[in-house]
Design a protein around this nucleic acid. Structure first.
Lengths: 249, 249
DNA sequence: TAACAATATTTGTCAAGCAAATCTATGAAT
DNA sequence: ATTCATAGATTTGCTTGACAAATATTGTTA
């Protein structure tokens, strides 16, 4: 007979959870130093390897960092938005590769979020973002750019657009979907998209943003997305054909 | 003189990263069994505790799970959207408590995302979601409900609204901001919001959704958010006063 | 045949210690 | 006296070896 998975959680996990709570509820603050591993082992009445397993769990979530040496030890680390963004992006990438998330849904979400961004950006964009975007557009016109460089510039352009919302939560959310779509988007750009058309759309967005013309801006975003989706389904079609060809062969 | 933090990453971290990549790129699939810890230790030429530290890092990200016994071992676990959502929510909650994210920004993001949701939901809502929402509205009218129960019902109402988009990525994103705002929102409801007004707004949203009337739906959402923000700033004001009073005392 | 017990396998934990990093303080050379 | 090098001291990183607990399998007995 099969046993049900045991309910008792490992000591290491419990300790990790306890420390995590201490961080969450403010008992442990950023840059606070935890006791040494030996000290923790004594306090919790467990061995040092067990403590280490607990700490590694927290380190995996970048809640703590450790340094060796006399002034070293384990310190609480305030997770930055960047850290979390990176984590989230890699998780989403994994789920896309496992087909948990559908690319079509990601594309739709991106479109809708970008519409939101443009609404906010039209109101709040500063010269800083406008000039960042202008720089990228200029760069994109350079015919000697490789496809990789062009894609990277495309990402930077959209990042500047998101930054123009001046809302860090919005940025956080948006980066996730932008990055999750990036592999496919690169493929699309490599195979099907003409640079001229992309640049033209970027310029439309930029002009609308500079003029703070919401209507034109939304139209530009929609147009861009219609085009991206068309290329995107072309790419999927192409990939479908290639896959079925491989199956036959 | 201070040393720069050492560049060499720990062996355990490298191994964890290697296994993570194997999962990401499909070399290891869901429910695949990894070699035993001893076997891995032999393969990587490290000790078992080191392997365990690596595995615990992955377990912390719920990429693997372990069972004891002869048929036990370490198995690759396909992370579900639920897992990830939970992870993300707890991370965001932490960052809110550390003031990395501003509540005003979260509120704005939620408003904008909810506008997006309503746009999609108006087109795609099914009877299932409509009836879930109706159930909650009915429940909310029960005067004997505790504040906690009322809040929980409020969350379920909005969850149904998000589900009506039938876009799992959108749901994923939305749950994050809903949950991140929840503690404050509860406080607001407890102290400042009148239930009748909240219910009235829910009903407006529901009717617009049933009629698939986009204009009315957007208006209802906007109205709700104006009200929420007003209560929200009242609550912040109240908290500010309480804090400064404490400082004086 | 069915219930039960022994056994093997695998993760969980412990113990003690060495290695590597790195800060601090001491001492030597200028 | 000041600066530089060097020798501890301290803390994490890692190893070895072993035992404990969980649990599937296999054999034994009623």
């Amino acid at each position: 007979m099969k046993y049900e998975p045991v309910v008792t959680e490992s000591v290491a996990k419990q300790i990790a959870e306890q420390i995590r709570r201490a961080i969450t509820n403010g008992t442990l603050k950023a840059d606070d130093k935890l006791p040494t591993e030996s000290e923790l082992a004594r306090q919790y009445n467990v061995s040092r390897p067990t403590i280490r397993e607990a700490l590694k769990r927290l380190a995996a979530k970048s809640l703590i960092r450790s340094r060796r040496g006399p002034a070293g030890g384990t310190f609480v680390r305030a997770p930055s938005a960047e850290d979390m963004s990176q984590d989230l992006i890699s998780s989403v990438a994994l789920m896309v590769s496992l087909s948990v998330f559908d690319l079509t849904e990601i594309a739709e979400t991106r479109h809708e979020l970008e519409r939101v961004c443009i609404r906010l950006a039209v109101k709040r964009r500063t010269e800083a973002e406008l000039s960042r975007m202008a720089t990228e557009i200029k760069l994109q016109k350079d015919k000697s750019l490789t496809d990789e460089e062009f894609c990277a510039s495309d990402v930077r352009f959209h990042r500047a657009l998101v930054d123009a919302t001046h809302n860090s939560v919005m940025q956080f959310q948006m980066f996730t979907v932008i990055e999750a779509l990036q592999p496919v988007e690169n493929m699309v750009i490599f195979r099907f998209r003409e640079r001229e058309k992309t640049i033209e759309q970027h310029e439309k967005i930029w002009r609308a943003l500079r003029a703070q013309d919401l209507e034109k801006a939304e139209k530009a975003i929609d147009e861009q997305m219609v085009y991206l989706r068309k290329s995107f389904s072309q790419a999927q079609e192409w990939r479908r054909k290639r896959d079925s060809a491989e199956t036959v062969a």
